[in-house]
């Protein structure tokens, strides 16, 4: 069963559970305050550590993460889900919550950015070695759905390549014809590539750091074509503990928080001072 144990299955389950997982980060002895943070799926690892580091400096505080696709979190927030902080993988979903009246537009700040990368199974069954190869007929490509931030960024990236002089306008439609599935969040895209079901997928650079890095191969996307994903964060307007929520946001934007993000493969917005 060695071929099953590349971690792909675990990731798949983790990706699926991301839709509904609430994980307590800090098992403090008797936490009397709980801070609920809604974080985009691509922030799962970074915010797990972020929550623990923040709680370490706040006695009696426990950080509870709810991790899912940003579009799903935005929908939940607009349906009244109780939360203190929202960290989205794009401005669109943050704006949806601002429009829904749960977040004050003036409170929204960018805290990190991310880049796209093409990910291939470790054994590269389709033998891909350039972006041009994504247009090979019969290739099985998995993307996130256009409703998911990374899905929209993937479409933007393909459109950029199509419009460049080195490629032709048919590039994007040809590549899109190879898509076999539009997944619900970025971790499921990664899992299906790790499992080898897909020949290629498009995920964030931050999704393939640490142990995961060894289980896949990457095709870099050159800067001019890469789409920079901006992550906004804001306290939820009707939070019962606005002071704590504000301190968490400040922590994410502070040197310690930014270092955690950099460590997780995201691009911090504030360089170490």
């Amino acid at each position: 069963m060695k071929w099953l144990c590349g971690g792909g299955v675990g990731w798949l389950l983790a990706g699926l559970l991301a839709g509904c997982s609430l994980s307590a980060v800090q098992p403090a002895a008797a936490p009397d305050r709980e801070l609920v943070v809604f974080a985009a799926a691509s922030l799962a690892d970074a915010f797990e550590r972020m929550g623990a580091a923040f709680a370490a400096g706040e006695p009696g505080v426990r950080v509870t993460l709810s991790v899912a696709g940003s579009q799903q979190l935005a929908q939940q927030l607009n349906s009244g889900a109780p939360a203190d902080v929202f960290a989205s993988a794009n401005r669109l979903q943050m704006q949806a919550v601002v429009d829904g009246g749960r977040i004050d537009a003036g409170e929204v700040q960018l805290f990190a950015s991310n880049r796209l990368v093409v990910v291939l199974p470790a054994d590269n069954p389709a033998g891909l070695d350039s972006l041009q190869d994504l247009a090979l007929p019969g290739l099985k490509l998995v993307l996130a759905d256009a409703a998911v931030p990374v899905g929209q960024y993937s479409l933007d990236f393909l459109a950029k390549v199509s419009a460049s002089p080195e490629y032709t306008a048919v590039y994007s439609p040809t590549v899109l014809a190879n898509v076999v599935s539009y997944e619900d969040n970025v971790r499921v895209v990664l899992a299906k590539v790790q499992l080898g079901e897909a020949d290629a997928g498009i995920v964030y650079a931050s999704d393939v750091v640490g142990a995961v890095r060894d289980s896949v191969r990457l095709l870099a996307i050159p800067d001019p074509w890469n789409v920079v994903a901006s992550y906004p964060i804001a306290p939820v307007g009707d939070s019962m503990q606005p002071d704590l929520a504000a301190r968490f946001v400040a922590f994410v934007l502070g040197p310690e928080g930014q270092a955690i993000l950099a460590d997780a493969g995201l691009l911090p917005v504030r360089l170490a001072e």
């Binding site: 798949l12 699926l16 696709g69 579009q71 799903q72 929908q75 998995v142 759905d145 409703a147 898509v179 076999v180 599935s181 539009y182 997944e183 619900d184 299906k192």
Partner: peptide, 24 residues
Amino acid sequence: IIFAGNFPGRTQTMPLAIYLGFER
């Protein structure tokens, strides 16, 4: 959604379309 994936007209059945439609 795990085994067949989600592709309109090929594997996107009504429950999948409802789930993704809920977000969109």
